[in-house]
Design a binder for these strands. Structure first.
Lengths: 251, 251
DNA sequence: GGCGAACCTTGACCGGGATCAACGCGGGAG
DNA sequence: CTCCCGCGTTGATCCCGGTCAAGGTTCGCC
């Protein structure tokens, strides 16, 4: 925990009902009582980009909903080789709700806003409210699916497919967040919340290979660069084809 | 579902109390009422090696505890490339307890004995008994940890480290199952429940590379072959070193 | 504006693992 | 017993992505 005191804000001011993490987050669908008890133990924190949120093998001090920003979950080998094992966006839940220790490092890839629950109090609430644990279980199953999809990418895809798959994930996320229009395969503009080194660690590649493959996809017209840290994909179908998956495959 | 009628046995005869999946399985720690309701909907099945237990994107018909044998969970790309995303042993739970469809294929790597619960009835029980859902949630968190450890292997380890890591997992499992003695780093003999093609699909390699690396580890004295389908590791510490991880790392 | 640091891109070369091919081995069927 | 087929091993060669090295770009700070 490397949080400075001034990063710990007083009780959240916005009501949970207007919370950006309510839609799709663990709070969604909870009753009045659950929600009010949760909000009683919650507090908001802002964490600057690059900072470690919690470490592997550490006793968890808190769990959190992500309100804004991007969190990377990493694991490392003894000699320093690193692999990003998960990327979290709002309204994902951060932390291992059961078990004595954290399973990996959590780091702020961008500046991150969290809605934190002290570990002990949160676990008590989980025990009292099975509906809360149920929501968390469903989210964990989705994380497991995502991890296994990523295993296919890491084990069997080429560098070009890996990079295309990564961009496709971002593009689909942006389209889903942006609007409910699903009229066709119109283009999508999206942000790149990760630096090259993070993309490389996520895809099991080096930064040079990531850079070369992005250049290649750009030269093939599958993506265009829109300023720094922002890209545009004219066709998600074409990008999906380059990613080595069927168009309707959500992975 | 490719089960022949004769593979569906009548109600289980052995009591749940003497069940091989009780220790460490989802039934462990359940109350009398939960256990008796579970056993009422349970039936045993034996599935021959190589057979598909259920398919991806299929509506689940049943969930199951694995009583004996080895199950592989696989995902495939459109062009046939395959990745094993999980290996299940007794007393693991098989199936995605929530959600409309299965997330991957489940296949019997060896002959497998299952204790099956019809999906609908099982989900009803889960809703009534939060303790049951809690057990499943904990097991899913462990699966997620294992998947993420495997992501590090797939993304960042060399072929030699991958094969050593795989053998290490089997050796540790055998030692844990065999005896509670943890006196030191004495050797372990264990079975290989997977063929070369499965090992390759699990490690993101080809069968040729797996074969070569096993030969190499054998020539280095890290493992010896004990007949067909059986190996011996004289030192788990040495194997762990070759796997690129710290000795006390359980991954 | 000028400078420096962090990040990104590009080029040249190399090597680990894939690919292609041949052979060995063991077990079941005739 | 012989044949055949599935599985595993070994060898020769290739190529994708890693490695090493050299700029280029962006942006904050003085």
């Amino acid at each position: 925990m490397n949080l400075r005191p001034d990063q710990i804000l007083p009780e959240q001011l916005r009501s949970c009902r207007s919370c950006p993490a309510a839609k799709g987050g663990i709070c969604e669908g909870l009753g009045e009582e659950e929600l009010s008890e949760l909000s009683r133990i919650a507090h908001h924190r802002t964490i600057p980009a690059g900072q470690i949120i919690f470490s592997e093998n550490e006793k968890p001090e808190f769990f959190a909903n992500i309100l804004s920003g991007t969190v990377r979950l990493t694991k490392a080998l003894a000699d320093g080789r690193q692999q990003i094992v998960g990327i979290l966006f709002p309204p994902d839940f951060l932390g291992r709700a059961h078990g004595a220790t954290n399973a990996c490092f959590a780091e702020a890839a961008t500046e991150v806003e969290l809605c934190c629950y002290p570990a002990e109090a949160f676990r008590n609430l989980m025990q009292r409210f099975p509906g809360l644990e149920h929501r968390l279980y469903e989210k964990t199953l989705d994380e497991l699916d995502a991890a296994r999809d990523w295993m296919v990418l890491l084990g069997r895809k080429t560098a070009r497919e890996k990079v295309a798959s990564f961009l496709l994930v971002l593009a689909r996320r942006a389209r889903k967040a942006g609007c409910a229009v699903h009229g066709g395969d119109e283009g999508v503009t999206f942000e790149l919340p990760l630096r090259r080194i993070d993309i490389a660690d996520y895809l099991g590649l080096t930064i040079e290979t990531v850079s070369r493959q992005i250049t290649r996809l750009r030269s093939e017209g599958l993506v265009t660069t829109v300023g720094s840290g922002c890209m545009h994909a004219p066709s998600l179908a074409a990008l999906a084809a380059a990613a080595g998956q069927d168009e309707d495959d959500r992975a």
